[in-house]
Amino acid sequence: MIALDSMAFAGGGLVRAAHLRKDGALLSGMLSEGRVLPVWRGKPMVDAPRDALGWVRAGSPVLHGAAPPVFLGLDDAGKGLFAADTSDWSPEAGAEAVEAGFLDPSVQRHPALDDSHGYTELRAVMIRLSPLEAEIAATAKALLHWHRSHRYCAACGAPSDLAAGGWQRSCPTCAAQHFPRTDPVVIMLVTRGNRLLLGRSPGWPEGMYSTLAGFVEPGETVEAAVRREVFEETGIPVRAVRVLASQPWPFPASLMIGCHAEAEAEEIRLDPEELEDALWLSREDMAAVVAGRHPRVRAPRKGAIAHELVANWLADRLD
């Protein structure tokens, strides 16, 4: 198994205190004394010089017009940690987010805070945050995204209400209850002897390759999903599959399930709708990729489970 502390968003040890979520009066009191993480269109507030999250108090002007805060858990002192969606705030002209591209490099700064603070793309800072704060940011981003995309009851279509500290939505019309979703995704280290299979999706930055991945379908096991996805994308059959590790991936709300799969053949037959390219690389080539010396291929992003799968394979640490 791969150590959790080597991956972003995993192993932070957040005390989620689920038993407090339905006590509205208690949470209201905790909110007045606790800290709130503002999140704007999926981007958490970050204190850049400290490589830390940019917490504010409940009365901060940053939260003016924000959605009701959600309860994330407790800090080391037992104080409440919350997150609030501030997506309705409009930045000054010229400070809008970049809508296209693999990673949004723009930073939006709120006039109520100094220039050290700004709404920042989480991918850009995920390995700079502490394990705990990275887990908090991932939780906040995924949970607030769910609320923004599930405002209406799936049973009757009426507007639903936030409940249980943000971990539930309740319909006042038909009494249906809805809960946050996490989408399971298999991500596969596919090997054959001394070679590793990598692929790249259309639209990725030039030279970027990664291990194959795909969503688990209803009624499917993790192992079956690995075999199906590899065959659908590359035409390569695999036999033995084993689970190695998992990583929350809040883009927008996935759980990456890292697996090792042994290929039975090497001939690649691409599905162009899924992959732009796929290739086999030797262990020596992959060492050059990770070291940044390969002329064509760039390594998966540090902090992502794909990077850790590759690094542990190179170090012969999968067992």
Rank of each mutant, 00 (worst) to 15 (best):
P205H: 13
H307M: 10
V39L: 09
A93W: 07
K43V: 06
L198R: 01
G94W: 10
A299H: 08
T234G: 10
D115L: 06
G303T: 10
Q177Y: 01
V98I: 12
A163T: 04
G78Y: 05
V241R: 06
S90K: 13
D76V: 08
P252A: 14
H307Q: 12
S201G: 03
P184E: 12
V56I: 03
H64T: 14
L113W: 03
L53V: 04
P49G: 09
S90I: 14
L37R: 01
A245P: 01
Q168M: 15
P68Y: 11
A8K: 10
S210V: 02
V15F: 07
R296W: 08
V36D: 04
I236C: 08
P44L: 11
G118F: 03
L281C: 13
G11H: 08
A299S: 14
D23K: 12
C174R: 03
W167V: 07
F71Q: 04
Q247D: 03
L197Y: 01
T86W: 10
C174G: 12
F71W: 13
A253D: 14
V36G: 05
L143E: 11
P68W: 08
D115T: 05
D85Y: 08
E206I: 04
V222M: 07
D115K: 11
A315N: 08
R41Q: 15
P44N: 03
L81C: 03
S90G: 05
A84H: 12
H260I: 05
L4T: 12
L318I: 01
D115N: 12
G219F: 04
V216H: 01
P252G: 05
S254E: 11
F71D: 07
M126A: 03
S254W: 07
K22Y: 01
G258A: 15
R296G: 00
R109A: 11
D285S: 14
C156T: 06
L81M: 08
H260Y: 02
R228N: 05
L275A: 09
Y152H: 14
H64N: 09
H145P: 00
I136D: 04
P300I: 05
V190F: 00
G59R: 14
R151I: 06
C259W: 03
A265E: 14
V289L: 01
S32C: 03
H294Y: 02
E264H: 04
A67K: 12
A304F: 15
K79V: 03
R228G: 05
S6Q: 15
S90V: 15
P69V: 07
R109V: 12
V243F: 11
D183C: 07
L270K: 02
L129S: 07
